[in-house]
Design a protein around this nucleic acid. Structure first.
Lengths: 232, 232
DNA sequence: CGGTGCGTTGACATTTCTCAACTGTTGTGG
DNA sequence: CCACAACAGTTGAGAAATGTCAACGCACCG
């Protein structure tokens, strides 16, 4: 893999595209690329940071494991996303577990030590990180808001509406995620998720295929998301 | 209020204490101080940023209002906390509402425009902001994790255990918050909160006074927090 | 001293979880 | 290439937690 390719891959990321070329080249020198498979562990909770990551393609989930084996998905990430910057910049330890959720996921790995040195030496890096962290902050605030909704149906409706839809005819969402993981993300059981989708399909509001969901009546979903009491 | 006093107040904040004196002085020049009362609105959702804030004393809650009038508390903040930096640095609009929750709350207000100018001109500010934002990120991740717990009792137990306790004899928590607001923070109804506290007190695990809670059996609470099925 | 709103308690309705069985899919090894 | 194992997803029945509605006591503030 050539340095030029790596540089191109990095520049494709929202967080790096605004960096001056020479700085980007320096970051490239810290970066390695690797291909992973579903289920691969990237790092685990408490481990000391050796790098932070960007997803070139594929998917990753960040989660915490509670003592009773229950899994709390903090974040689900896809192509273009970066993760663990905060761990590198402030803590030195990963606060969560990271696992690959899609086959053939390509990761860019930016070495922590080198990056920290660069961060201290070159003042142009910090503003870029500020923007990146602020972004992350907003998605987390939205997540908190989402989870605060008491009704499972509200949480699901809201999640569906927020997904980037392939705007062809009708909003069709490709949930790049096992339903099991989506359920965990929304703090509900797979059974509840399954039943909600089933019922909404029966009511004609959505069309649920294997890994695709078509929103046929976004209006109705919006009502649910706003907490206009439960389904049925 | 003298500039020296203001400077001292700013330096007392975790986010600013590591700034070089001359830079801190420049920040001070952008800062005003004000005293507010319970219920005062500091800013509301969607409003364009005129400043970010630090709490010198008292309390503030950040929340979103959903269309049906339901209130989702994103954050509850106390002395030493800063808020709305991300809004100032990246978005230009406040994403939430901010309201004072304690009488005689003293706020420091750092003007957005001036701060942004300073941020761009002086490279020493960015690293400090990175640290600050990373901190915030972690508390939000914890919040997400907390809210992912399905059982109301687990969420409450976890919250109680995380509170800074006055380590005298027994951990005594001064919930600097109306129970109503605590309930909203934990995504449950005031009734459920009331019942949980009542039951736990009956079981001898806690002692619940007006605004103080004594943890008499943290072990037991820890079990609940870990999701070892519901209470009783 | 009266009002306003928080906190509590009770009765009830409902959602959602739990447990269990069954189906379909995916991937592997013979 | 097929059989089988492993696992995701679905469906059903029952239990439990929590929300809803309503009434009441109590504190705080005017």
């Amino acid at each position: 893999m050539s340095a030029a390719e790596l540089l191109g891959a990095l520049r494709a990321l929202p967080h790096f595209k605004s960096l001056p070329p020479d700085l980007l080249a320096q970051v490239t020198a810290l970066t390695t690329r690797s291909r992973r498979g579903t289920g691969d562990l990237i790092f685990s909770e408490g481990e000391s940071c050796r790098a932070f990551f960007a997803i070139e393609s594929g998917g990753v989930k960040l989660y915490r494991a509670s003592p009773d084996g229950h899994e709390q998905v903090v974040h689900t990430l896809h192509a273009g996303a970066t993760f663990a910057e905060a761990a590198v910049l402030s803590f030195g330890r990963y606060p969560v577990n990271a696992v690959v959720t899609e086959p053939s996921t390509v990761l860019l790995e930016i070495g922590a030590e080198g990056f920290l040195r660069l961060f201290r030496e070159d003042a142009r890096l910090a503003p870029a990180m500020v923007a990146s962290l602020s972004m992350r902050l907003v998605t987390l605030v939205e997540r908190v808001e989402e989870l605060s909704l008491v009704q499972a149906g509200s949480r699901l409706a809201r999640w569906l509406l927020r997904q980037p839809a392939s705007r062809d005819q009708q909003p069709a969402i490709d949930l790049g995620l096992a339903k099991k993981d989506l359920a965990a993300h929304l703090a509900m059981t797979p059974e509840t998720l399954s039943r909600l989708l089933h019922r909404w399909q029966a009511d004609g509001w959505i069309e649920s295929q294997r890994t695709r969901i078509v929103l046929k009546d976004p209006e109705r979903l919006l009502e649910l998301a706003d907490g206009v009491s439960g389904p049925t």
